[in-house]
């Protein structure tokens, strides 16, 4: 049976892992390659590296970090941050990344999703959608959410569910859905919108933002219909151990790789 995936996210800045609270106040959380190796050994199913400063500073993701990580670990990993062109993708994949995630460029030039899928295959194109509650998008009694870009600083005027369907139709392989309202709060994932988006597309949805305890993961896999769940600080600071988390999920009848 297909397992629900647990994905630690490493927000990287100059090779160090950092974690922001609501996208600001960066706290140093350690060496990225060391952390990646530890997570891989503890049973993480996949890793995501986001070069969070990349878009802001117009910098390209650090290739050497990708090389080092690819040599060190034997589970899949995704790299995101400042990826805009087919060349950016080619460099990262040929240095060992399994997937790339794109954010701001999906909105600015959605055709790039089709181009990347055609050139490298849908399986490696992850669209990272940052969403925030906006009641002007409410419809049919359902809470509305808006797509944000540029590290959560720019509102786009796009409806989250509609845009998720659009990226799916253009050939995205997975959606990494970050709820900015929940991110950093440790009060749980945004279940309703995660479930609505997961059911609106036929590609996996990775839920992100708000994990604070093990129950939150159970909730996002059941009520939230997520295929995978991503978290950063609770893993980095040892608040939740991945092995314990997987045993807990298994005891709650959720299929995980033990």
């Amino acid at each position: 049976m297909l397992a629900k995936r647990i994905i630690p996210c490493l927000d990287v800045c100059n090779g160090r892992t950092v974690k922001g609270v609501n996208f600001v106040n960066l706290i140093d959380a350690g060496n990225a390659v060391e952390l990646a190796t530890q997570y891989s050994e503890k049973g993480a199913d996949e890793l995501v590296f986001l070069d969070i400063t990349a878009t802001v500073e117009k910098r390209r993701t650090l290739t050497f970090l990708v090389q080092d990580v690819a040599k060190a670990i034997d589970i899949p990993f995704t790299v995101g941050g400042g990826i805009n062109t087919l060349d950016d993708v080619d460099i990262l994949l040929s240095n060992g990344a399994d997937k790339i995630s794109i954010n701001s460029i999906c909105v600015k030039n959605p055709n790039i999703i089709e181009e990347m899928a055609r050139e490298f295959g849908s399986q490696c194109v992850v669209c990272a959608l940052d969403i925030k509650r906006n009641n002007s998008f409410d419809k049919n009694g359902l809470d509305g959410y808006e797509i944000y870009t540029h590290g959560g600083r720019v509102a786009t005027g796009l409806d989250a569910v509609e845009f998720a369907k659009d990226v799916y139709n253009r050939g995205a392989g997975e959606i990494l859905l970050t709820s900015m309202d929940s991110d950093g709060t440790k009060k749980g994932f945004s279940l309703d919108i995660t479930s609505r988006i997961s059911n609106a597309v036929s590609i996996p949805v990775i839920a992100s933002g708000g994990a604070g305890n093990m129950e939150h993961f159970k909730d996002v896999f059941t009520t939230g219909s997520a295929d995978a769940a991503l978290a950063a600080s609770i893993f980095h600071f040892g608040e939740v151990d991945i092995r314990d988390l997987k045993r807990y999920l298994n005891n709650n009848n959720i299929s995980v790789r033990l």
């Binding site: 049976m1 297909l2 397992a3 995936r5 199913d45 849908s122 399986q123 392989g173 997975e174 036929s202 590609i203 996996p204 295929d227 995978a228 790789r257």
Partner: peptide, 15 residues
């Protein structure tokens, strides 16, 4: 079978 209900592609860890 795209009508079965499982997501496609088959992505992730399986037995």
């Amino acid at each position: 079978d795209t009508t079965f209900g499982d997501k496609i592609p088959h992505v992730g860890w399986n037995t």
